[in-house]
Design a protein around this nucleic acid. Structure first.
Length: 157
DNA sequence: GCCAACGTTGGC
DNA sequence: GCCAACGTTGGC
């Protein structure tokens, strides 16, 4: 799997946390309503890609574990549900605007890696998360992936 | 909880 | 198709 790619995906733990994913095992990453984030899921991800799970909007924001892409892209069901806060009246079943992938729990870090710690690490200063403030799904390099695991004292999986 | 940054919408 | 207004994200 030499062509394995890596990603970072943000979630507010009040909405969906690493503990929720550990409990659920596999979960659709729904509710993404940003085109670039969608494009990453729809056009670039492959089953088996590694994903850093990032807790946002808490203090401190931190990487709390990892997951894996677990499906091909498919339409986000919440866009068709009028009762969902992610309902999109401009989308249709024939031409769905929003697609997502399923993610699978891999591991929870014993020592989460905070945004501050990441910022202080020179090897991570080029991370896309620091340049694209509001993008919730960003690419990660293999070197960054390994470095984060090292900082978490975790086995690279 | 504030509010700057910034992606998106819609009038023209 | 420009760009002001709007709405949301997310660090602090």
């Amino acid at each position: 799997m030499s062509d394995r790619q890596y990603w970072l995906m943000k979630s507010e733990p009040d909405e969906y946390s690493i503990d929720d994913l550990e409990r659920d095992g596999v979960e659709p990453w729904d509710g993404i309503r940003n085109y670039e984030a969608r494009n990453n899921m729809r056009d670039k991800m492959n089953v088996g890609d590694g994903i850093l799970f990032y807790h946002s909007r808490i203090s401190p924001p931190e990487i709390v574990g990892t997951m894996e892409v677990a499906s091909e892209p498919y339409p986000d069901p919440t866009q068709f549900d009028p009762d969902s806060k992610y309902f999109d009246e401009k989308s249709s079943e024939e031409d769905p605007r929003w697609k997502l992938v399923d993610v699978k729990f891999v591991q929870k870090f014993d020592e989460p890696v905070s945004r501050t710690a990441m910022k202080e690490e020179p090897a991570l200063e080029e991370m896309v998360i620091f340049k694209r403030r509001r993008l919730s799904i960003t690419p990660v390099t293999e070197a960054e992936w390994k470095k984060i695991h090292e900082m978490a004292g975790a086995e690279v999986k």
